[in-house]
Amino acid sequence: MEKHLNIPISADEIRDLKVGESVLLSGIMITGRDAVHKWIHDTFIDKTKPATQEDLDTLSQLKPILDGGLIYHCGPVVSGLETKQYRFVAAGPTTSIREEPYQGDVIHFLNLRGVIGKGGMGPKTLKACHDAPAVYFHAIGGAAALIAESVTEVIGVHKLEFGIPEAIWVIKVKDLPVIVTMDSHNASLHTSVRDQSKSILNRLIEG
């Protein structure tokens, strides 16, 4: 029933995935949300902000992890901050749509095979999923402890100056449960639910 996928994920494995499929993800990924997407976009894609040596070093460390890999839209609760023996205590997904202005470009720039988040994303990301190919994996919002259990190791952290929720946490996961809600064939569960609910809304407020 559930499909197991290991990161890095191949383009063929991604093309096989369809909206509605349950997947258990294993391997190394990073967390990245608002500040991280803006940083990648402004510094390396739009280049409106000059890249510092530290920016370049961070990028070169992340690139091999992200080639065929995933970014998880997540701002975790982390314990062990003083001893640096980091552990994820709570790690559910954050709302992804805020990354819509950046996501498509970031997928192409880093050769991502997908992103994980909640709430779904828009047409720019769906097109990038088609072209890359990549998919949007939906994790369960608020299932923070359950997902934290699937994080077996915190390998490291970058950009801690963004704050705990916004930093880039490099994590190893085992069987992180997700559902494909946007695939590489232009299908989006979010678009179909939105369209259906719109017609019901119209009936409810006009009928």
Partner: peptide, 9 residues
């Protein structure tokens, strides 16, 4: 376990 229900507290 006495841990947060959601990471966004």
């Amino acid at each position: 376990n006495s841990t947060p229900i959601c990471q966004d507290t």
